[in-house]
Design a protein around this nucleic acid. Structure first.
Lengths: 149, 149
DNA sequence: CTAACTGTAACTACAACGGTGGCAGTATCT
DNA sequence: AGATACTGCCACCGTTGTAGTTACAGTTAG
């Protein structure tokens, strides 16, 4: 029931913020503010994104984070795989009994099924880019501005 | 990284065992043996499957568990939804800041994306039935028997 | 009435999570 | 030089969900 960590959500949120300000870098504190979280957590996750080549950071005063490539070339799947290590559907906690015909084969069979299912999910995540989310945010902001006029 | 619980794996494993012995019921102890687990855990999970109408149980001596409908009418998705409550991709831990344009909309946008992705996964799980897994187990057993001849 | 089951509650040990504080390293500004 | 503002990293905390276990009440068949 607990689901996976919320790291993907944080990563995608941060990437969208970086896409929004592509002319200047953002600090982990600024991103943490938007997330109502704290800078260390943000740096942990953005560190993963950097290892995956999605963003880069500069140290020292005036430092911060920027996208390493155009937002339209970063998918949600990229963010997901960068920060979320394990499988989504978890397998048997122990290997089942070898004395049972079902036990002998179920692990293999489930592995194949679960992998396919996860692949379907990841494939769907790969269809949306950060640029797409960024544009949606802009559209919604424009809509709000028009309503207030 | 931790992924979801292994309840789906247990549920599918148990359902396949029940499909295999559709003329007699199985006890939670027998199923637990095959899983190298323990009966209480099995009863917990099969209880969920019963609530979902996938299996039924009889109490008392000679009691046990049976499928409530044909194995070809039970998909992995049925098992999954019966035992796994929460979302697979987890959302923001907190609502983001309302003071940030990205924060204002990201939760909604992510919800839509993640829901689509989860749907893709569930749709794939819905394509495989317990009967299918059962047949695969039989095939593999036949293959093993042929090899030993 | 005893044996063999389900059903459920209570408990343990453990792992991962979000979150926090501290501090070394690094770059910029004055 | 020295202060300032960042990243990077480590160690720790409290909370939560997990698998697993014990215990026991309820139910049915022999």
């Amino acid at each position: 029931m607990v689901g996976l960590s919320s790291r993907s959500a944080v990563a995608i949120h941060a990437l969208t913020m970086l896409a929004r300000s592509d002319d200047h870098s953002l600090t982990s504190a600024e991103i943490a503010d938007s997330l109502a979280s704290n800078p260390v957590l943000v740096r942990r996750i953005l560190g993963n994104l950097r290892d995956a080549g999605l963003v880069w950071s500069t140290e020292g005063r005036g430092g911060g984070w920027s996208l390493a490539r155009p937002a339209r070339e970063i998918t949600l799947h990229d963010a997901y795989t960068a920060v979320e290590a394990g499988p989504v559907l978890s397998r048997h906690a122990h290997p089942p009994s070898d004395a049972c015909a079902v036990g002998r084969h179920m692990q293999d069979l489930l592995e194949a099924e679960f992998r396919d299912a996860e692949k379907a999910m990841e494939e769907r995540l790969g269809r949306t880019t950060i640029a797409h989310l960024h544009r949606q945010v802009q559209d919604r902001e424009r809509e709000l501005a028009a309503r207030d006029r």
